[in-house]
Design a protein around this nucleic acid. Sequence first.
DNA 1: CGCAGGATTGATTGCATTCAACGACCGTGG
DNA 2: CCACGGTCGTTGAATGCAATCAATCCTGCG
Lengths: 244, 244
Amino acid sequence: MSTDHPLGRLADNLAGRARLSADDRAAILALPVIRRTMQPSAYLIREGEKATTCAVIVDGFAYRQKLAGDGARQILAIHLPGEVLDFQNLFLTHSDHNVQALTLLDLAVIPMPALRELVQARPAIAAAVCHNILVAAAISREWLLNNGRRNARTRLAHLLCEFATRLDAQELGSATGSYELPMTQEQIGDALGLTSVHINRSLRALERDGLIERHGRMVTFPSIAALRAVGDFSALYLHLPEER
Amino acid sequence: MSTDHPLGRLADNLAGRARLSADDRAAILALPVIRRTMQPSAYLIREGEKATTCAVIVDGFAYRQKLAGDGARQILAIHLPGEVLDFQNLFLTHSDHNVQALTLLDLAVIPMPALRELVQARPAIAAAVCHNILVAAAISREWLLNNGRRNARTRLAHLLCEFATRLDAQELGSATGSYELPMTQEQIGDALGLTSVHINRSLRALERDGLIERHGRMVTFPSIAALRAVGDFSALYLHLPEER
DNA sequence: CGCAGGATTGATTGCATTCAACGACCGTGG
DNA sequence: CCACGGTCGTTGAATGCAATCAATCCTGCG
């Protein structure tokens, strides 16, 4: 778990989900990168644009987003430190949605040609990339279910559980039973297809019922099991390496 | 456009979105296949199962589906003739959702190992597969927006437009301005996160407003442009080869 | 003919939205 | 130091879109 190298966590991620040789891992770490910082709400890619680079989150959070014709926003995905933002652009010519910084972002930017070469030269890495893409797709399917067929309370609990689980998987220490959710209630609403007002009420209801505690954006769970039950949450769709 | 070979349309699909050599194409057509028929509502894969084959739809429609804890169903995707159902299982160990026949299905079933070998041996095909996977993911993101941030009328019009466009892309002749939508109103509701009752009312409203005509499950559009406007529809997310 | 699944319609209910106002917090600048 | 403005969170009241409940109709089919 080499957090000293900007791509260390990327390599860990890819390796954790496929079988990468030391060679493959070294090849990933040898990729040329440019470090870049982005301010909250800055756009990394816009709908319709063509991307020539591939960004990996070294630190901070990002989100995918798309706008309806009436201006309503739907947040499509949240990305955690260590995750890759642009594998899509390896194979698609233009982006179909926007990607924005959620918090202050520290990025490692890889030129697309270098990544493309790596993927073509190393089948194991290509497989890991595919795996990664498919997990992202699985998450968006679960969000579709969450959004389409669960009520506000359940949706919210589900999102909180997903966050806890994914943060754990990245070893960002939510195992302690709490984490900082770096989203405004408005953003949570846009992720869940609800209004910020209703998110506020649902959060307070969860708090009132003893399922969560809140201090600012820090969320604590007395019992993750209880929250999972309320959120109808099963981690299967995250396709994590071992357990459960 | 060799519709005589069961994998002809698959090869066309993959080729249309990437650059496949005649060699690559021949390799696809040379894949071992078993023809199989499935009755409507039969399960092709269940959540949690591990798939050892990869099915291509020769004729008929299929859908992906997932159930919430309270039994509510969310339809995650609809698949048309010519589409592949199981690329996910090339890289993921188990399925996170169910796949069911929507209509009577005529399938060409490919053993996973043969497909895996093909993908590993031919980078161009691997790229086409990735492309295919990413387009499916893009569709589910658009569904997320549709489901989360559009009202019933718009959602429904959007779905009808998507169908028209995808059928066109598969040259299944909706270019005439009409097609058969092989879904019950209940299924449409489960795809759009609405009830069948509300689908019924929304369909009739679209009909009343002259945006569609219906005869059984046959739907006709006097003006696809008008329907697109109502459905807030842009085909960008389908990542079709040319045009627009 | 009678059954079953699907479509249609009406009446009622309810979850979430909308509108609006106020409060809390924070960084900035006079 | 504190006033100020902006963003975010909180709360209340009214509204509305879609769900629910419940019949009834229709059609294909054994």
